[in-house]
């Protein structure tokens, strides 16, 4: 490896060294009286797939929205790709947006555009000079990388199945080759076979494109199959960040219920069989 390989591929030329790609410190989020986060600390390291788990209402999506700048936290500091994610400065914001891809829960595809046009939207916005034919080919490439057939390009999102919509959303998230990928429950609503295929797709792309992935999930199989580390949100904090094998032994009632309940055991057994 050359000296360069260690540095993250942020195309705006920002070099971050080996510092975490995302670092959250003392995050507080409040909705009226309800305190969702009270001092959340979390680091996402370069090149890892970090799974974020927690019961319903523990603020997994709120955490992601805060990092993405969709919600302004009540207190705390967030740094993404070496810059302050809470800065109002549009140049900084654009730097983060340009270098991160997001797959929302339902894909959030633009319903009046075809899949191909959806994937081309970020390219048009950031690289208006790109020749049409090249942009078209890039979109086609991304769609096939996401595991869709080429004829999906001309279809509307409403003509796709749920699993294909997620793949199309992933293709759009990847259209600018971002080093950082956010996935909000990528396997929710997919059948088990489709979910397993999506998991391995994420793993493959993460390795091929050198991605860092922030992955919110409820899916125990996903945790066992592809996550390098798992962060547990509970009691308004991140109570632990560790590889999933270590988390099983953590002495916390929710964690015990989660990993040692019937579904947790099944997922672990399935993992051991494949090993």
């Amino acid at each position: 490896m050359t000296a360069n390989a260690g540095a993250t591929r942020t195309l705006d030329g920002v070099v971050i060294g080996d510092a975490p790609l995302i670092s959250v410190r003392g995050l507080v989020n409040r909705f009226g009286e309800q305190l969702v986060h009270d001092g959340v600390d979390l680091d996402v390291r370069r090149g890892e797939i970090l799974g974020v788990v927690g019961g319903s209402g523990t603020g997994k999506s709120v955490l992601m929205r805060s990092i993405l700048g969709l919600r302004r936290p009540d207190a705390g500091r967030i740094r993404v790709l070496g810059v302050d994610a809470m800065a109002e400065d549009p140049v900084t914001r654009r730097h983060i947006d340009r270098n991160s891809g997001v797959l929302f829960q339902d894909g959030a595809l633009f319903s009046s555009l075809t899949v191909g046009e959806n994937v081309q939207v970020p390219l048009k916005e950031y690289y208006p000079d790109l020749p049409d034919s090249l942009r078209y080919e890039l979109a086609l490439l991304k769609i096939k990388l996401a595991g869709l057939p080429a004829d999906a390009l001309d279809k509307l999102p409403s003509q796709l199945s749920g699993g294909m919509r997620k793949r199309a959303g992933l293709a759009r998230a990847l259209s600018l080759d971002p080093p950082l990928l956010f996935l909000d429950e990528p396997t929710a609503g997919l059948d088990p076979i489709g979910a397993a295929a999506f998991d391995s797709l994420i793993r493959t792309l993460q390795q091929a494109l050198g991605l860092t992935v922030f992955l919110i999930t409820h899916d125990l199989d996903t945790l066992y199959a592809i996550c390098d580390r798992v962060a547990v949100l509970a009691d308004r904090k991140v109570i632990a960040v560790a590889p999933v094998a270590e988390l099983e032994t953590l002495d916390h009632p929710w964690v015990q219920d989660y990993f040692n309940g019937p579904r947790g055991r099944a997922a672990r057994d399935a993992m051991q069989e494949t090993d």
Partner: peptide
């Protein structure tokens, strides 16, 4: 070497389908 996995992934799905 560290770029080969990207190259391979893209080469796999690339074909010369005319627009």
């Amino acid at each position: 070497d560290d770029q080969k996995s990207l190259i391979a992934a893209i080469e796999d799905v690339h074909d010369q389908r005319p627009k």
